[in-house]
Design a protein around this nucleic acid. Structure first.
Lengths: 257, 257
DNA sequence: CTTGACCCTCACGTAACGTGAGGTTCTATC
DNA sequence: GATAGAACCTCACGTTACGTGAGGGTCAAG
């Protein structure tokens, strides 16, 4: 007849949990000791110790106390289902975190290379841009875009940003000179723009249509403005006219920040 | 003189946040509108809108509101530091999650292959075992162990678990027959045990010493019991005597669940 | 008979809001 | 000018899984 019942402190010590945690489990009815001493001290029987170990293990697996309660008390909560669900949740979470991490690293690198004195607003733009990406591309497309970015390399990306700036400046001059968007001079610019867009999309039609949708819904001028100076008044409309005249498609911005 | 100030609802709509969130930011003094209408309605000026965008962006990066406040209001909070810190936090979190995910997947697979009808207690054991591992091995060692497990393959792991069972049974018989732990027969068993241990450690001395520490501090009989039936009374002591007599080392269990 | 190590029950604090409750104000329409 | 609906206001409690006291009994040892 060895000590068949433990008091809270002892149980806490053995399981590595705190007394407060055991109290909490008692409060919510997840693990209530079946007996008490006359003085009201909790006494945990061996079956309750075992239950606590199960609880602690499931807790380590990241399950919520409610899920654990279900696992332990309701037979229709099969372990496999719960594990499956938890795995899916975790995987989603991991991909989310990874994406976030890459973004953070990219931002930090930009902050570090003090060639451009990065302001909070630039950062804001980048973040917004990246998040918008998530709204217009599927996760697989984001994967492809990321790979494409890696292929091109950071300097080529910066290079194309510069080319966009020059191109938009050229469009602006054309507009101010009153040139017809369908004229040969402007169409040469449109063709250049097309190739820059295609460099980004990598020729993927899904990515291209996502980009088009993004420009339509967010306003192309806002998208393009993120990657440099704001566009002159009416320039985006002029640009779309030129692109339409070229018969290629709608209009679009640049690769990732 | 266009609408230079926005009301909460309008601002919420534009930023995709909720009115409650804006109220919250006001409550904690993170973003308080500088003006109010006579009726007390909040009026956000353009500078405040910009600040809100910065807040929202940093929020998306996973920063806490307190960190954000620091970034925005205190010059000594450099962006780079904050980003660096956040990256480190995220990376740690990701490796943690990944480890957890592997564990979950392994458990689910075991649950699925209904060859063994897995009980909650088996699961509890596995979880505890895996967590103990984290206490005795460094992250790098855990990496190596995981790679080694992949090399060996799941069937070999199961195989060695069976071999451990047989080996312990043989030790048990020797003990009951009163054989000297240093006798040739028992030493043959010790040698077999040694090779099983080495199969697990892959010869890595760090892993070996971690294992020894684990057996000492957790009690080797508890460790070994996890991977099969509980050990007979006194068997662990007998086993350690045999291993000491062999001059190899202390004692130890089996690869990962 | 006191001291210290336990134990008990409230009950507030955490992070970042969600979700009403109950009441005022704005805006449009009749 | 009355009225309806939308939008605004201020409390204030709920969420998760406990941490951290406050204030007070219980128990064995000295």
């Amino acid at each position: 007849m060895e000590s068949a019942a433990l008091k809270v402190g002892e149980l806490a010590r053995r399981t590595g949990l705190t007394v407060r945690t055991l109290h909490h489990y008692d409060d919510i009815g997840l693990l209530s000791p079946s007996r008490r001493t006359p003085a009201g001290h909790r006494l945990y029987a061996l079956t309750e110790v075992r239950r606590l170990q199960q609880i602690a293990s499931l807790r380590q697996l990241g399950l919520s106390l409610e899920d654990i309660r279900g696992c332990l008390d309701r037979p229709e909560y099969t372990l496999e289902q719960v594990l499956d669900l938890q795995i899916r949740r975790l995987r989603d979470e991991i991909t989310r975190q990874r994406r976030l991490c890459t973004l953070l690293e990219a931002l930090r690198d930009r902050v570090r290379s003090e060639t451009e004195d990065l302001s909070l607003d630039d950062l804001t733009n980048s973040v917004q841009a990246t998040l918008d990406f998530g709204k217009y591309y599927t996760p697989e497309q984001l994967e492809r875009i990321a790979r494409r970015g890696a292929e091109l390399g950071p300097e080529r990306i910066r290079g194309s940003q510069v080319e966009w700036q020059e191109l938009l400046a050229a469009f602006g001059r054309a507009m101010e000179e009153g040139l017809d968007p369908a004229s040969d001079d402007v169409q040469a610019l449109a063709s250049k723009a097309y190739s820059l867009v295609e460099e980004f999309t990598g020729g993927d039609p899904g990515i291209r249509s996502g980009l088009t949708r993004m420009c339509q819904e967010e306003g192309g001028e806002n998208i393009l403005a993120r990657y440099g100076t704001p566009l002159k008044e009416g320039l985006w409309e002029y640009y779309t006219k030129a692109m339409k005249a070229s018969g290629l498609f709608g209009g679009s911005p640049e690769s990732r920040p």
